[in-house]
Computed example of a mutant assay.
Amino acid sequence: MLLRQLFDRESSTYTYLIADRATKQAVLIDPVLEQVERDLQLLQELDLTLCYCLETHIHADHITGTGKLREITGCLGIVPENAQVACADRMIKDDETLAIGSLIIKAIATPGHTDTHMAYLVNGHYILTGDALFIRGCGRTDFQSGDAGILYDSVTQKLFNLPDETIVYPGHDYRGQTVSTIGEEKQWNPRFVGRDRANFIVFMNNLNLPNPQKMMEALPANESCGKVSC
């Protein structure tokens, strides 16, 4: 298996390239519009065929690169079930699997940051957590039908029930961290350690964070697979 973690500095977004080395088939998870040329160059250099662009959720802080990548490569765009994206080629359901050559990507519904969020378990060992779980943090829950209690349930009942050695690759990081494990986050993540569900809800509901800078542009664009209105 080939796995590359790619970073967009403006939105602090991680995009993941996963490929089967034998078949040269690849998937990009959470591509960013401004990084499409970077991603295409890497695909070309590694002699990979992009089969899918896979979203963890409908993003509010950046515009997806799925639409542009689909136009150029002919790949399919996949979003979580019930996401408000009419232009997607396919919806992926909880517990559904996606095969990339010999690789198996399993969708795990982890709502809370948004109401249609998915994490993706790769070959049973790597979990791409999107905005549900960060390294020593988690995604916000104050817009896009977010719900702090539901996020607490998603993380503690689904993600934290994975084996401790499961490697965690988050959707964002704002402090230069790249990778963790489920065991580390269960022990050290300050959003969850020592908090019950009620305390977590109070904490999350009082963060008072500013809206993402691109929110008004990104949400409608991402509901159109990254198409920006003129």
Rank of each mutant, 00 (worst) to 15 (best):
L219Y: 05
I63K: 00
H57G: 07
Q157S: 14
E223H: 12
L121M: 13
E185V: 03
V193M: 06
G226D: 05
E184P: 01
A83F: 02
Q25S: 11
C87P: 00
S180V: 10
Y174D: 12
P111Y: 03
Y152I: 09
D95K: 15
T181W: 05
P111C: 07
R175G: 09
T64N: 03
L159H: 02
L151K: 04
A26M: 06
M216P: 01
Q35D: 13
T56M: 05
T141W: 01
A19P: 04
L6Y: 01
S224G: 01
G77C: 12
Y14M: 04
T73G: 02
I105C: 09
Q44M: 10
V202Q: 14
H113M: 09
P163G: 10
D196Y: 05
F192C: 07
G171K: 03
V193K: 13
V36N: 08
Q157P: 02
T116G: 02
T181F: 02
G77R: 02
I72M: 06
D153Q: 12
P163S: 10
R175H: 13
I108W: 01
L103V: 11
M204F: 03
F134A: 07
V228I: 15
F143W: 10
D95S: 12
I100K: 00
Q35I: 03
D94F: 04
E165L: 13
M1W: 02
I58R: 04
K24I: 09
T141A: 03
L76R: 12
V36L: 04
L133F: 04
C138D: 06
V85K: 01
E185M: 07
A221V: 10
G112D: 08
E217D: 11
V32L: 10
S102R: 11
A99K: 12
N189F: 06
L6E: 09
P170Y: 06
N206I: 12
D8W: 00
D153Y: 01
H62A: 08
V27L: 12
K214V: 01
H59I: 02
V85Q: 03
E55D: 11
L2C: 02
L54D: 06
A83N: 11
C230N: 10
H113R: 05
G139A: 09
R9F: 07
A221M: 10
A88D: 02
F160E: 10
N205V: 04
Y120V: 10
N206F: 08
V122T: 06
E223S: 10
G137C: 08
K214E: 12
